[in-house]
Design a protein around this nucleic acid. Structure first.
Lengths: 340, 340
DNA sequence: GTTTTTAACAAAACCGGTTTAATGTAGGAC
DNA sequence: GTCCTACATTAAACCGGTTTTGTTAAAAAC
């Protein structure tokens, strides 16, 4: 590897002079500048990024930290990444994707800090250790979702208005005459689950309906795919509760599982069973029949806002805690209908 | 920021001792180890990634370098990234996405080397300056696509068998009786365009058909979206050449433009016009009517193979030049039919 | 003509780690 | 009791940059 010392020697100057030529932070005579640039060119010299970051305390890299169990990326994450990329592109930042295995992650987290100026954290859980850690170490972060407890007021976050979104979805179903609405919610420790549950109850209360207990199921966070959970729970619950006529699903994969179960039970969607799901992607809705009615979460905008917020924090050192809530849009596509 | 010196002072030992406690590269007595760990814990110490990388000459980060004009990521890139992530996940590597603006990029490329152990380069063009640069600096790379000229034998690469894929697509169309097949190819300077053009001619020659000149158009690399190019060229060419009954498109977006143009011209797909496209994504095919017949490129596998190849190079220092060619699958969905 | 300022560069210190060479100390062999 | 070895630890050098401080010579000020 050719270093700054090599260039200095070749040009017959000191290291500091070469550094100044490149950074232009101090005046260097035309003649010497030429000589240094020529030497650098000939040796094919490139400043070492790490060495530079070490002293500058700045990498121009922001991290995307996702709880890495889920791969490949779902539509929500994909769009979010797209949004992040667009903003980073404008501001000259790069993105480091953190996808280490939980086991490795634990080691690495203990062993070294991430080489980033700031981080965007996905899918916060209750008392998320990642948030605690970044707060302690004063690493700028933006949380996508709602940090739990008092942390919500201490770190920046961008989120769907999940309470409103869930309420809107349930309101639609209630208005169509559904009384027993099964809610296949996401994992209990995720704060998003709590918000959506709140929205579920809110819409019921507004309509003066007292929701049956036990109609909200949380996906176990450890195991299995969403599609399997959707499938199994739908089978089980529809057999136990004959009154269920609609299902609200946490995501599209779950909805696919629900479709499978409905087919197996001989139920027609939306005639016998209405299905509505929170949907991530805006670009490529999965092909389902009938097309899935969903609450479209604007992942792309979330990604953009999160990146903006983080870059603002990183560059200006701004300490203000902001929380951005984005509305979700109800897209009716045909998987919901009135009860008969 | 709390440094190793702080911990050393707090524990009453030297920096080297603290370092050894963390890296376990030298034996440290139980008693001292305990004292150091306690001090580190209390101070919330994390080793500095850059400082460590500086001396280790290793970051455990691999770069994904795409010619950044195109955003958001298309389905091909998305799947490729997924594949890369999966392999990186297994091997404890992180991914740095390089999406700097061309203008900024030029500066940064001159200013600093990337903080990565190796890079995966997408969309190589003829005499790609990125490849020249990495070769000169001995940065391990894997090219996704075919490096041009003699470089093909000098760097690792993973690619679709584009010649075979294009030939297969054209063969289908010829077998359906199409004689004049419009080929909306990708930008001329991309090597993939050359390969697919070859496949186009190959299939014609096999069938004993002499293809009309001027039926292959290259997307201008500088401007506009694929969808617009597909739309405008289809309109123009179908007006000029009444004999055209089929179009082969470089990607799905172009195909969408072709669908638009067909509608405007009052042509029914596939009755009046057959359309076939190279398609990237396997997860979320865009919803089109009729569903688009395509050559499915296995982007996910390409990403996995590329990551494997690169990590192998990086870890073992292996210098062998490998080229992996992956077959593409023809998926008939209904946008191609026999001529009448 | 001497002093002060300025420009242009060199030398050295520093960033936060790792690694090598040096040091001291205890245990075993003779 | 002396010598050698093994072991645990420290001090110092190093990674490749940036930045601060010092030095020299020429230009400007008096």
């Amino acid at each position: 590897m050719v270093t700054i010392a090599d260039v200095a020697k070749a040009a017959g100057v000191s290291k500091g002079t070469v550094s100044s030529v490149f950074s232009k932070k101090r005046p260097i005579s035309k003649e010497v500048t030429q000589r240094v640039l020529k030497a650098a060119e000939e040796l094919n010299y490139r400043p070492n990024y790490w060495a530079r970051s070490l002293v500058n305390r700045k990498t121009n890299i922001i991290g995307l930290n996702m709880r890495s169990e889920k791969m490949p990326l779902d539509a929500f994450q994909h769009d979010l990444l797209d949004g992040m990329m667009e903003v980073c592109y404008e501001h000259g930042y790069r993105i480091l994707i953190n996808i280490l295995q939980p086991s490795l992650l634990k080691q690495v987290e203990l062993i070294a800090s991430d080489p980033v100026d700031g981080e965007i954290l996905l899918d916060p859980i209750h008392d998320d250790p990642r948030i605690e850690d970044r707060l302690k170490r004063h690493v700028p972060i933006v949380v996508v979702g709602r940090p739990s407890g008092e942390r919500a007021g201490q770190v920046c976050s961008v989120d769907n208005d999940n309470i409103a979104a869930a309420a809107k979805a349930v309101r639609l179903l209630l208005s169509q005459g559904h009384q027993q609405i099964l809610f296949l919610n996401s994992a209990k420790d995720r704060t998003v689950a709590e918000d959506r549950e709140l929205g579920y109850y809110l819409a019921h209360r507004e309509a003066g309906v007292n929701p049956l207990a036990g109609l909200i199921l949380n996906k176990p966070d450890d195991d299995g795919t969403s599609i399997r959970f959707g499938y199994e729970m739908t089978l089980q619950m529809l057999r136990e509760h004959s009154g269920i006529s609609a299902v609200l699903a946490d995501n599209e994969s779950m909805a696919m599982g629900i479709y499978q179960a409905a087919e197996e039970l001989g139920l027609v969607i939306p005639g016998d069973l209405s299905v509505i799901a929170f949907s991530g992607g805006e670009h490529f809705p999965p092909a389902m029949h009938p097309p899935l009615t969903g609450m479209r979460l604007d992942a792309r905008t979330i990604g953009m806002e999160a990146a903006r917020l983080l870059i603002e924090q990183v560059t200006t050192g701004a300490a203000g805690v902001k929380r951005i809530l984005l509305p979700s849009e109800l897209v009716e596509r045909g998987s919901c209908a009135c009860t008969h």
